[in-house]
């Protein structure tokens, strides 16, 4: 089964990024394809490489990079939402792609499921 994920909250402030990640890993483990992660609202903050949490905590943007590299899944961030929140190519993690909502429309319509995580 092909699954798209919509993530609507920023890292740390809400558990959404963590749940989305855990769900995505479990789906892949069961043989499904995660087509893409699409970031909207404050979710776009997930792809900032300026993230620098304390050493004993998870680095959420690095974790997305590792996820992207391991499974070949792109982490898309909506360009309009990104511009509002200081996310641009200069701060973008590996695996992150800034794109338009047309990309999201494709993700929402071409997959068997869309699962949303947010607040």
């Amino acid at each position: 089964m092909n699954i798209g994920i919509l993530l609507k909250e920023g890292p740390y402030n809400h558990q959404a990024s963590d749940t989305a990640y855990n769900f995505a890993e479990a789906a892949i483990k069961r043989g499904h394809t995660i087509d893409a992660i699409f970031l909207y609202n404050d979710g776009v903050l997930n792809v900032s490489k300026l993230m620098d949490p304390p050493q004993d905590d998870r680095n959420i943007s690095s974790r997305w990079t590792a996820f992207s590299q391991k499974y070949g899944v792109k982490i898309f961030a909506c360009v309009v939402a990104s511009k509002r929140r200081s996310i641009n190519e200069d701060v973008l993690i590996e695996g992150g792609v800034i794109t338009g909502l047309g990309t999201f429309t494709d993700i929402a319509t071409r997959n068997d499921r869309l699962v949303t995580f947010g607040d």
Binding site: E25, A26, H32, L114, V115, T116
Partner: peptide
Amino acid sequence: DYEGFVKLVEQHQV
């Protein structure tokens, strides 16, 4: 668990 979450998603739109 998360696998059970995935199984529910397999069976239903979300």
